[in-house]
Simulated assay, not measured.
Amino acid sequence: MSLYLLCYSVPFLALMRGMWAEQIVLWPIGNYTFDVNATIIFRFTLVWGIGLVGSLVALFFVNLTERVNLKVYEERAVSVESVRYLAWFFCGVSILYIVARTLMPEQVFAVFTGIESFAVCSILVFFAYALLRARVGLLLVSWGLAIGYAYANTRTGDRDFVVLFVGMMLGSIFYWSRYISLKALMLIGVLAVGVLMSGVYISMVRMDVPLTEENIAQYLLYNSWNAIVLPMVDQLSNHWYGDHLRYGKTYFDMVVSMAPSPIYSFFGAIKPITLDNPADWYYIYGLGGMHAAGVGFENFGLMGVLLDALFSMTLLLLVDRHSEGRSYFRYLLYMLLSASIMHWLWYGAMYVLNMLMFFVLLVMLFNGGRFLGRVLRAAARQVAANGQRNEGCV
């Protein structure tokens, strides 16, 4: 929840420059700036504040409700031992992907569109298993997968490994929260800063930016997370009075776009929203991002900004409430959502929807496998019983 509020606010922090300068610098490397205007600064500040209010309202009302008594679900909770085959299967899938991503990155991208989210999910499936088993060997294997994935990313200048590390670190903090001291928390903070710095470094190398002190400072203060509010500059400047409202169309397109891409290709249809450019409906050349507040504003104006933040924070609060028991799928869902927050808020809700869809399909796969196992065991017992009866008859 803190990560959500932080990521929601960070892109707006560049507005503080308007207090002493004549231009707002969103991304100096990309030459994205706009002149300071009292009206546009007020509108930006209002949108930012409404989003925070929506989040705090959700926090207030959810905290008024009683916590769910998870003892009711203990018998139905999935134990970590029962998912070991599933976890090792996704460990193998992760290894195959990392090897292919490292050796043949262009071919992998050509065949599998949007595969990065699936790779992150696969590694988290195994990490959640390793975390709950609390075995050093398993944890080392999972962190080895994460490091291998990070290396495969850096080979092509991508930074998707950052969200994976965020999900793993937050999952670890959540699981071991009762044992984490202030010193350990500070160490985790240092690791988080290191992950951020590595992302900035890769971004600079990818764009062939010289590693000078001035450029490093600019990339730390004004990275691509600032540029994703650029569409809002146009929205709040030219469409403040609601002449462009879509009344939920983009949210509908997101839900429709949850189906895998091959299904659209099979029926000759065009997928409304893709991970390659989740904000294509408000495209700015060279950018694919759109802040969550911009999505809400595009659909329902200021009320949309409030409702978007309200429902998003409510979802996180409910997941947090239901993640208190020692259940594998609860911890996994917690980490999947944690890993999606940055992409979710900066590039579109398609990322969190894909995480949720992966989770639902994984649960269905697990339950289907367990049901099939029961059927086969029952059939085997029946065959054995028939064999014993036949022997008795003889």
Rank of each mutant, 00 (worst) to 15 (best):
R330I: 02
R374I: 07
V352M: 11
V36N: 01
V319N: 08
L332Y: 05
L317W: 08
M342N: 05
G373Y: 01
S177F: 10
M197V: 11
V93I: 13
S177L: 04
Y331N: 14
N390M: 12
F300W: 15
L15A: 11
L3E: 05
I95L: 15
F109M: 11
D35C: 03
P105M: 07
P11S: 01
F61I: 13
S312K: 06
R321I: 01
V93T: 12
D280S: 15
A227T: 11
L245T: 12
I180G: 02
I228N: 06
F366D: 08
F300I: 02
P278T: 07
L221C: 03
G171N: 05
G137W: 14
H343W: 12
F118T: 10
L124Q: 02
E298P: 03
P11Q: 01
G373K: 14
T102E: 06
I29T: 05
M19Y: 12
Y222C: 01
F359N: 01
V255I: 15
Y97L: 09
H343Y: 13
I270L: 03
M290C: 07
V363D: 05
A38D: 10
S2E: 05
M342E: 03
E74C: 05
M357P: 00
N277K: 14
V209M: 13
S265K: 11
Q388T: 09
S323D: 12
F266S: 06
S261M: 11
S2P: 00
Y175W: 15
Y201M: 07
S237F: 06
V68T: 15
R330H: 13
R381P: 00
R159A: 07
A293I: 05
I270K: 09
H244D: 08
N277Q: 09
T154E: 12
G242Y: 13
L15Q: 06
I50T: 12
V305F: 00
F61A: 03
E214F: 10
V83Q: 08
D253M: 06
E213F: 11
L315A: 14
V125K: 11
L145S: 06
L236Y: 13
G304D: 00
N226F: 01
M350W: 03
A119I: 12
A110L: 10
I98H: 00
A309F: 02
L307A: 13
L6H: 03
L220H: 05
L164E: 07
V209L: 04
V72Q: 10
Y219K: 08
F174A: 04
M364F: 15
Y8E: 00
G387Y: 07
V162S: 06
H239E: 04
V93K: 08
Q23P: 01
L376F: 11
G248A: 07
T274G: 08
Y264K: 02
S177G: 01
L221M: 09
G348E: 02
A77N: 14
N277E: 09
N238K: 14
G268R: 03
A259V: 15
V163S: 10
I273D: 00
G148M: 07
Y331S: 02
